[in-house]
């Protein structure tokens, strides 16, 4: 089973309104020890997210209003540096995920949009139900080695590839997997390793697999 966002998200989310002032936001972040706050409108919809990086623009350039910028990105940073309310400071549109999103998909979304937190919204009502951070997602790597080994032997080797797990040696050391054994066809090595890499908590995979039949065409060097 792949972990979903609903399993790792924090459900006690602190949020602010659009008119919350700069200093109140700083205080809320300190009080609750959070780095990003969803900004809700009066109907409870997530309008944006205000994070420590949005606030930092002001300290980095207190006199930003005195400058004139042509580039849209610079103007955006300038607007944030002079902003005083959550609505002006926040990053819009908000990048959100649904509770059923997989941890892997959430990690991709964070990377693509270069954000560290994702508000989790209900797919139907659009209301805020939680928030997920990078730390929550990295939790999958704290899985015990024995669980990872079990998943590889039963789910990947036995169930998906219909191979005899007794013919394979799977060693897991701090998430690093080494697979030893013999497969029938050379072509199935790549697909097997691909599946092992996707088992939750796997850090890296080393193959010591052998084959009986070479069914791969000679590969021309790229």
């Amino acid at each position: 089973m792949r972990t979903e966002v609903r399993d790792v998200m924090a459900t006690d989310v602190v949020s602010v309104g659009e008119q919350t002032t700069f200093k109140e936001i700083v205080e809320v972040m300190y009080r609750d020890g959070v780095r990003a706050l969803p900004v809700l409108d009066s109907t409870g919809q997530v309008r944006g997210v205000v994070s420590t990086s949005d606030l930092l623009c002001k300290e980095a350039d207190p006199a930003a209003t005195e400058d004139f910028h042509v580039l849209p990105a610079h103007r955006r940073a300038q607007r944030k540096a002079e902003a005083v309310t959550a609505a002006e400071l926040m990053t819009v549109p908000p990048v959100t995920v649904s509770p059923a999103t997989t941890v892997q998909e959430a990690a991709r979304t964070m990377r693509r949009h270069d954000v560290n937190q994702l508000p989790v919204t209900d797919g139907l009502t659009g209301r805020l139900v939680g928030i997920v951070s990078r730390a929550d997602l990295l939790g999958v790597y704290t899985r015990p080695d024995a669980d990872i080994q079990g998943d590889i032997l039963t789910e990947v080797i036995a169930d998906r590839f219909r191979l005899d797990p007794g013919r394979f040696d799977v060693i897991v050391d701090r998430g690093r997997v080494a697979v030893q054994g013999t497969v029938e066809r050379r072509s199935s090595i790549a697909t097997l390793l691909h599946a092992v890499r996707r088992v939750e908590g796997v850090v890296s995979v080393t193959s010591r697999l052998e084959y009986r039949l070479d069914d791969l065409y000679p590969v021309v060097a790229p």
């Binding site: 941890v103 892997q104 990690a107 991709r108 964070m110 990377r111 560290n116 990078r134 730390a135 997602l137 990295l138 999958v140 790597y141 890499r197 996707r198 796997v202 850090v203």
Partner: peptide, 11 residues
């Protein structure tokens, strides 16, 4: 954490 998360994003 973003450096580590790349592994989860693209195993």
């Amino acid at each position: 954490k973003s450096d580590l998360l790349l592994k989860e994003a693209a195993p």
